[in-house]
Amino acid sequence: MGVGEGSHLVDLACGTGSLAVQAARRGAVAHGVDVSEEMLAFAQVRAERFGVGPHRHRAGFLDYNHSGPLADVVTTKSALHQLQDLWKQQALLNAAGMLRPGGTFYLWDVILGFEPTGADRHLQQWIDTAGRPEGEGFTRADFEAHVRDEFSTYDWIIEGMLRRAGFDIVSRAFPSPTHAEFCCRRT
């Protein structure tokens, strides 16, 4: 994504801070944004271990107000699905607003790349194959809860949302029927 010395990165829903820390290690001005104080504390410990100091912000997709220079890169991974489509669109508009024209927006998430008529089969296959034994990661019950309670979006819907937020889709990849990666440029 071209993150290096002097570039500006914002990682929305940064979790444990691995991306913000790696960007700071490359000399970028990095901002890790998360709603979880525990995740930000973990990210701080990781940053200290590597001797870098990315900025940490306790906020979410909808209430983070970026100050300072516009970012060269804005990223989010495995978190946008926690918002209903109405709020996803607002989150994408917010991301575009903190990104310089021509800047990169990277999205990786649970995005459904199959036709709605195949939903039962694909979602059941995901639940059956992705769940791990208790104590070894996300369990079958976790994936069942995701399908029941969270807000995954079809690829054709998210593509429209990205365009409406002011992004050109540069590339997209679907490593599985339930996950997608989009690399976009702000227009």
Rank of each mutant, 00 (worst) to 15 (best):
H31K: 02
Q22P: 00
L92I: 03
S152P: 09
A119L: 12
G160P: 00
I111A: 00
A59M: 05
H57N: 09
G102Q: 10
H31R: 08
L93C: 08
R185E: 11
A141Y: 06
E159V: 06
E181H: 08
T139M: 10
M39Q: 14
V10P: 05
E37R: 14
W87N: 12
F114C: 03
G4I: 07
E37T: 13
W108F: 10
A180E: 01
L19T: 10
D109T: 06
V29W: 07
G15F: 07
L40F: 03
D72A: 04
E48R: 15
A59L: 11
R26K: 15
L80R: 05
E159Y: 02
R164F: 00
R26L: 15
F42E: 14
A95P: 09
V29R: 15
E150K: 13
L123A: 01
A165Q: 06
R163T: 10
R100Y: 04
A59T: 10
P69Q: 09
G4S: 15
W108Q: 10
T75W: 01
A165T: 07
D168L: 12
P133R: 13
L162N: 06
V52H: 10
D120N: 08
L107A: 03
A141G: 09
R46T: 02
R185H: 11
D128G: 04
T117A: 11
V170I: 14
A43E: 00
A119Q: 12
H55G: 11
F61S: 02
S78F: 14
I127R: 00
V3K: 02
G102T: 12
E48Y: 02
I157Y: 01
T75P: 02
A96C: 08
G137I: 13
S152Q: 09
R185W: 06
M39N: 11
M39F: 09
L12I: 13
L9D: 03
L86R: 15
G135S: 04
L123E: 05
A13R: 14
R163F: 01
P54W: 07
T76I: 06
G51S: 01
Y64G: 05
L19I: 14
P133L: 09
M98C: 08
R56Y: 13
H122S: 10
G68C: 10
A79K: 08
R121N: 05
T178R: 03
G68T: 09
E181W: 00
L9H: 03
R163E: 12
T187F: 02
G97S: 11
L19Q: 11
H8M: 08
E150G: 00
I127F: 01
L40T: 07
Q82V: 08
G4D: 09
H81I: 12
G53M: 11
R148W: 01
F182W: 03
D128I: 07
G113T: 15
F143S: 06
R25P: 08
T117I: 04
G51R: 05
W156V: 13
G32T: 10
T75L: 05
E181G: 05
R132N: 14
H66M: 02
S7H: 10
R100K: 15
S78I: 10
F174S: 09
H8A: 08
P177Y: 07
A173Q: 14
